[in-house]
Computed example of a mutant assay.
Amino acid sequence: MDLQLVGKVAVVTGSTAGIGRAIARGLAEEGATVVVNGRNPASVEATARELSALGKGKVVGVSCGLDSAEGVEALIRGAEAEGPVDILVNNVGIFEPKPFEEIPDEDWQRFFDVNVMSGVRCSRAVMGGMRDRGWGRILFISSESGINIPAEMVHYGMTKTAQLAVARGLAKTLAGTGVTVNCLLPGPTWTEGVATFVERMAEQRGTTPERLKEQFVPMVRPSSLIRRFASPEEVAAHAVYLCSPRASATSGAAHRVEGGIVDICF
């Protein structure tokens, strides 16, 4: 299926690794001009170079953190050098397991600034242009943790619930304009960060990372129907579709790519 993304300008925040990188690659493979982003200039440059080598959509990088208004301004300014932004994927996010009583105020604020306010600011910066042109796609990468709040990282779950609220409200704000706003809810996904986390846990438990990887989802998310980690590419395939003109009748929705962990059928 042709997703009709040739000529579109897409921004994917936090896209030098994991789900963000897979989404950026998927959009580039469909012919979009993609702006990748991260804090580390070397990682951003390497990602842009590697994805550009695919020989499909143009890929450029903008290096900046998105935990401040100034960082968001730098990203949008750099992206608009490629043309008006047609697609925004609010993917950047942080997570850290920590008992509730040990989470200080500073961590609550940091998680909110990175996971929530980055998307609020980026969306606010591009929505006017999308509305004026009569077309646009804004996608928040939330999580099943926004519905299934994890006891081991309540502050993370809080931010993912907040994304659901922001996306639904923004979709209502942009109703009838040709701009859609949606959320994607991945479940456990085998990214670089998760691999590091599992390696540390395996060392603590005296087992191998490979063994723990097989056991992790059935043990920690026993309601999973696929009983395994998803790959970033599996999540990205759904994301790229939601960013395309083909998804024109979908807005204000929260699409689950969590392997059936959330025990509802709608």
Rank of each mutant, 00 (worst) to 15 (best):
A74Q: 13
A74E: 05
A74H: 12
A74V: 13
L75N: 11
L75R: 14
R77Y: 10
R77L: 03
R77S: 11
A79E: 00
A79R: 11
E80P: 01
A81D: 10
A81P: 10
E82I: 06
E82L: 15
G83H: 15
G83P: 08
P84D: 07
V85H: 02
V85M: 04
D86I: 03
I87G: 04
I87V: 13
L88H: 07
L88P: 08
V89N: 10
V89L: 04
V89E: 06
N90D: 03
N91I: 00
N91A: 04
N91W: 03
G93K: 11
G93S: 05
F95T: 01
E96G: 08
E96T: 02
P97V: 09
P97C: 02
K98F: 09
K98Q: 13
P99R: 15
P99M: 12
P99V: 03
P99C: 06
P99G: 09
F100S: 13
E101L: 13
E101V: 04
E102W: 12
I103Q: 10
I103T: 13
I103G: 02
I103P: 01
P104V: 02
D105F: 11
D105G: 05
E106T: 04
E106W: 01
E106H: 02
E106F: 01
W108L: 10
Q109H: 14
R110Y: 05
R110G: 04
F111M: 08
F112S: 07
D113L: 12
V114S: 02
V114R: 11
N115P: 08
N115M: 03
V116K: 06
V116N: 01
M117Q: 14
M117A: 07
S118G: 06
S118H: 08
S118V: 06
G119A: 08
V120H: 10
V120Q: 12
R121G: 00
S123T: 02
R124G: 00
R124E: 00
R124Y: 05
